[in-house]
Amino acid sequence: MPSIESLNQIGLNHYLALSAIIFSFGMIGVLMRKNVIVMLMSIELMLNAVNLSFIAFSNFTANLNGQIMVFFVMTIAAAEAGVGLAIAVMIYKKFKEINIRYFEQLRG
């Protein structure tokens, strides 16, 4: 049982807990949604949660490596969004619907 003091003294743990909650939301989104674009957005949500934990670590340990990592994560996220959306556009052109189950038919 967390004491009142630990609720009032905002430290690294609080930020990490927040980040874990957002990460789990992103995970639920990826598992439960059928729309490819919403799944991509859920992945962005998970990446953002990880970024939050990086920034929190960086702040509370006075170490800037965490912020550099966030740069890299952002770049990868942008690249992933670009490719993911291109594939989503392809699926929509073929099947007039963006559903994850059409992915398996994208052969050749």
């Binding site: 430290g11 690294l12 874990a20 789990s24 995970m27 670590f57 702040n59």
Partner: peptide, 24 residues
């Protein structure tokens, strides 16, 4: 998903670097 979140939070409870003194 809830298990993952709970597990993570449970682990973070023991993280002890969260001292305000060493902030940026």
């Amino acid at each position: 998903a809830a298990f993952v979140a709970g597990y993570l939070i449970g682990t973070f409870k023991d993280v002890s670097v969260g001292s305000q003194s060493a902030s940026l």
